[in-house]
C-alpha cells in the first residue's frame, strides 16, 4: 500500500476505506477506550488489592472466596507503622536514596558534560564502558565487596551503601545526562564561551537550567532504583543500614501467616515512591526517553 505512488491505483482503495472508516471509528474509539479502562484496572488491581487487604482483619484477608466488602480496620497500618521499627528503615532508605543520588550526580553530571561537549574519538568507547559496568551482574563482585567492606568497617553502614548505590546509578546518570547535554543548542554554548564564561559557569548557569527536566527525571529514576534495591541491601546490611525492602522481607518472615498486616507493611513500604513517582510522572515519561534516545 505504502509504495503505491500512482494515484489512479490508490483511489479505489481510498474510497472503500473512506466508506468504512467513519462508522467503524465511531464504534472503535469508545470500545478501545473502554478496553483501556479495563486493562488499566486489571493491571493496577494487585496494588489495589494489597492496599485494601491492609484494611482487613486477618480472617477476612485470608478468606476464600475473596471478600470485596468488609469492615475496614486501621489496626494493621497502625501496628506496621508503630509496633515495628519501620521508621528506622524508612530513615535509612531516604538517606541511602538521596545520598547516593546526590553522589551519582556530583560525579556523573560533570562526566556527562565532559563527554558531550569535548567529544573525542574515545567518547563512544567511554560511554560503552560506562554502560558495561552495569552489565556486570552484581553477583560477580559481591564476594570481594563483602570482604573489603568487612575489613574497612563499611559493612552494614549507610555510608558504604551510599557508595555502592551511587556506583549502581552513575552509568544511568552519565548516559541520560550526556544525551540531554548533546541536545543543548550549540549557539548558546558558543555565546557563553565568547562572553568568557568558564566551564563551571557554563555548566551551572547555562546548561543545567536548560536540562532541568532531564535532571529531575534522571534523579527520580535513581531514587526509585535505590529505594527498591534488594540484593546489595540483603547481602550487606544487618541491623544498622537496612532499607525498606529488607524491612518487608523481615516483616514477612515474622508475620508470614498474617496477610493483612503484611499488606499494610507492603503498602507503607512502597507508598513514598508512589507519591514521588506519580507527582513527577510527566518528567519521568519525558526524561526516560529524551535522555536516552534522540
Amino acid at each position: 500500500m505504502i509504495g503505491s505512488g500512482i494515484a489512479g491505483r490508490a483511489v479505489p482503495a481510498e474510497q472503500s476505506e473512506a466508506s468504512r472508516t467513519p462508522q467503524m471509528q465511531s464504534l472503535v474509539g469508545p470500545l478501545l477506550t473502554l478496553a483501556t479502562y479495563a486493562i488499566a484496572f486489571i493491571f493496577f488491581f494487585p496494588i489495589l488489592w494489597t492496599l485494601l487487604s491492609g484494611f482487613k482483619t486477618e480472617v477476612d484477608a485470608g478468606a476464600s472466596p475473596p471478600l470485596l466488602f468488609f469492615h475496614p480496620t486501621l489496626a494493621n497500618y497502625h501496628s506496621a507503622l508503630l509496633e515495628t521499627d519501620y521508621f528506622d528503615f524508612f530513615k535509612n532508605t531516604v538517606i541511602l536514596a538521596i545520598g547516593s543520588t546526590v553522589l551519582a550526580f556530583l560525579l556523573g553530571v560533570p562526566a556527562a558534560y565532559s563527554l558531550a561537549i569535548y567529544s573525542t574519538k574515545r567518547t563512544k568507547g567511554t560511554l560503552t564502558w560506562v554502560l558495561s559496568t552495569k552489565m556486570m551482574p552484581i553477583v560477580g563482585v559481591i564476594v570481594p565487596i563483602f570482604v573489603i567492606y568487612r575489613n574497612i568497617g563499611l559493612l552494614d553502614s549507610r555510608l558504604g551503601m551510599v557508595f555502592l548505590y551511587a556506583a549502581m546509578n552513575m552509568p544511568l546518570v552519565i548516559w541520560m545526562m550526556h544525551s540531554f547535554f548533546t541536545e543543548v543548542p550549540r549557539p548558546i554554548l558558543e555565546a557563553a564561551g565568547v562572553d568568557g564564561a568558564g566551564v563551571g559557569t557554563i555548566l551551572t548557569r547555562v546548561v543545567l537550567p536548560i536540562s532541568g527536566p532531564g535532571l529531575a527525571s534522571t534523579g527520580l529514576i535513581c531514587l526509585i532504583f535505590s529505594w527498591n534495591e534488594f540484593f546489595l541491601a540483603y547481602m550487606l546490611t544487618a541491623g544498622n543500614a537496612g532499607t525498606l525492602p529488607i524491612y518487608l522481607v523481615r516483616f514477612m518472615s515474622s508475620h508470614g501467616q498474617s496477610l493483612a498486616s503484611m499488606s499494610a507493611a507492603s503498602t507503607i513500604a512502597i507508598a513514598p515512591v508512589f507519591i514521588a513517582g506519580w507527582s513527577a510522572q510527566r518528567a519521568l515519561v519525558r526524561g526516560l526517553t529524551m535522555g536516552a534516545v534522540k
Partner: peptide, 16 residues
C-alpha cells in the same frame, strides 16, 4: 522547569 532545576541544584548543594 526553572523550579525543578532549582530544586535539583539545591539538592546537589545539600549533598556537598
Amino acid at each position: 522547569q526553572r523550579m525543578v532545576t532549582r530544586c535539583a541544584l539545591v539538592a546537589m548543594c545539600a549533598g556537598l
